[in-house]
């Protein structure tokens, strides 16, 4: 079992004997440290109460009723068209907050976009020697493709600024939160397509950046109004810690360089 030097302070936290500032710092650490979280779970009386609460007893006929109803429902499914699930159903499930799971999105990205844009630019690239160069900078890529990378990261930058400026509860009243969420959901879908492309190009630097972006997009896409007071500061802190804006600006600069017309 790993140890952590914050561990010994957890009893003090639970006993309420830490100063407010120290308590807050420890709480912030606790949710990112598996060791301290496990220690907190062990020591928390409320967690013990929850864990020991006896399982509820279902009414006597519940299971039998469930089984007979399910048998009927499945039989009627067999009569339906095999075309289910169709594209609309899948698309609807992505844009329904709460269902934005990775795999649904991946499937949807394939369905919605069908064939990846610009297949022609997916030609194999020779082994990269030296530090990895983002695909956007590769000479073999069309201007159109570089522009699409540029668009994505331009939007990413704007989204991040938008998220940093969100505040609770104003963002709920102005419906800003829904707007931000829908952008993040849309970008998550597009990110999947870009990742496929980066993978085919063997562009690990781009892939890594997109994965890091995904973590962020994921959290923003799932940010619900009622969790905002807890989650928004966490996401904003994450953005600061990740230092992702600097990376995005670097990529943007490089893409601008790459498509700059030759000067005479």
């Amino acid at each position: 079992m790993k140890t952590c030097h914050f561990e010994e302070k957890i009893d003090d936290l639970l006993a309420g004997s830490l100063e407010a500032e120290a308590a807050e710092a420890l709480e912030n650490h606790l949710v990112t440290c598996t060791t301290c979280f496990a220690r907190w779970e062990e020591a928390s009386a409320m967690v013990q109460v929850l864990s020991q609460a006896s399982a509820p007893e279902p009414p006597p006929n519940l299971l039998a009723d469930f089984q007979s109803e399910l048998t009927k429902a499945l039989a009627s499914e067999d009569d339906k068209s095999p075309l289910w699930p169709n594209i609309q159903n899948r698309a609807r499930s992505i844009f329904w907050p709460g269902n934005t799971t990775y795999r649904v999105l991946q499937a949807a990205a394939l369905l919605i976009f069908g064939v990846f844009i610009g297949r022609q630019f997916l030609a194999p690239v020779p082994e990269v020697v030296g530090p990895p160069v983002p695909a956007a900078l590769n000479q073999n890529i069309s201007t159109e493709e570089i522009e699409s990378v540029q668009r994505f990261f331009n939007e990413a930058e704007m989204l991040i600024i938008q998220v940093m400026n969100l505040s609770y509860p104003d963002a709920i009243e102005t419906e800003e939160i829904e707007f931000t969420q829908s952008i993040a959901q849309d970008m998550l879908v597009r990110s999947q397509t870009m990742q496929e492309e980066a993978l085919e190009l063997n562009d690990m630097a781009m892939l890594k950046l997109l994965h890091r972006m995904d973590v962020l997009l994921y959290e923003v896409a799932n940010l619900s109004g009622e969790d905002m007071p807890d989650m928004l500061p966490f996401i904003q802190k994450m953005i600061r810690d990740m230092n992702i804006v600097a990376e995005i600006r670097l990529i943007l600069e490089e893409t601008r360089e790459a498509i700059k017309p030759f000067s005479i």
């Binding site: 606790l30 973590v215 799932n222």
Partner: peptide, 8 residues
Amino acid sequence: GCSENTVR
């Protein structure tokens, strides 16, 4: 469908 940190 979220990160482990978010779960915690």
